[in-house]
Amino acid sequence: MYFDNHTNFPNATLNPRLLWEYNFEEVDFLKMRNIIIQRVVERGWPNDWYFILNTYGMEGVKSAILEIPYLNDKDMNFVSILFNIPLTSMKCYEKKQSQPQRWTS
């Protein structure tokens, strides 16, 4: 996996700009796990990835990814490949498939 060396970065921190609308000093990292992981998937740098992997563990990140309600196609495919998660088991994939497709002609 791309981030196998995350344990080499135990002091990695989360960029507060990812949670710009929250008071970062009052963020509960356990209650906001899914939001934090979604923001890192969408906009995070390697240091942010190291932070979530060190904080929540590989299985914690995987389970949060399964519950995230929306990801764009690029991010959805990236985490599917990175964590070996079938697209069909992701909530964001199911929601996308249930939306009616518009004609593009």
Rank of each mutant, 00 (worst) to 15 (best):
S63R: 08
N8A: 03
V40Q: 00
Y70L: 11
F29K: 11
F83H: 09
I81G: 13
D28A: 06
D48L: 01
K31C: 12
N72G: 02
Q101W: 04
N15Q: 04
M76W: 08
N15A: 04
V61A: 02
T13S: 02
N34Y: 08
V27M: 11
I37R: 10
L53D: 03
N54V: 08
E26M: 06
E25N: 12
M58A: 04
F24R: 02
K31F: 06
S89E: 12
E26F: 04
K31P: 04
R43G: 01
N84R: 13
L71S: 02
R43N: 02
Q38N: 06
L30C: 15
I81Q: 11
S98N: 05
P86I: 06
M58E: 07
M58G: 03
Q38S: 09
P16N: 10
F24Q: 07
E94R: 06
L53E: 03
N23Y: 02
L30F: 10
T88S: 11
T88Q: 14
R17L: 06
T13F: 03
K62N: 07
P46D: 13
E67D: 12
W45D: 05
A12M: 06
D48E: 12
Y70K: 05
T7G: 08
G44T: 00
E25G: 08
N84C: 07
R102K: 14
S63K: 07
L18M: 01
Y56R: 06
N23V: 15
V79L: 04
R33Q: 10
R39A: 07
Y50L: 03
F24C: 07
C92S: 09
D75G: 13
L14Q: 10
T13V: 11
Y50T: 06
P16F: 10
R43Y: 02
P69W: 10
G44K: 01
P100F: 14
S80T: 01
R39K: 01
I68Y: 04
Y2F: 13
T7V: 13
E59D: 14
Y93R: 04
I81D: 08
M90I: 15
N23P: 09
E94K: 13
Q101D: 13
R17I: 14
L53F: 05
L66F: 08
I35E: 09
M90P: 15
I35N: 03
C92D: 13
R102T: 11
E42M: 15
P46Q: 12
A64V: 12
T104A: 09
F51G: 00
T88G: 11
L30A: 11
M1E: 08
D75M: 11
D4L: 15
P16G: 03
F78Q: 06
Y22R: 03
E21S: 09
K31L: 14
K91Q: 12
L30Y: 05
G60A: 01
P10A: 13
S105L: 14
L53Y: 10
Y93I: 15
L87H: 03
W45K: 12
I52D: 03
M76E: 09
D4H: 10
K91G: 10
N5G: 14
R43Q: 08
P16I: 09
W49R: 06
W20F: 15
W20G: 11
V41A: 00
K31W: 02
I85P: 03
Y93F: 15
R17W: 00
L30W: 12
T13L: 07
E94Q: 15
M76T: 15
D73G: 04
R39Q: 05
K95V: 10
P16A: 03
F24Y: 09
E94H: 14
V27S: 07
I36G: 00
N54M: 01
S80M: 05
W45H: 09
W103M: 13
R17C: 15
L19I: 11
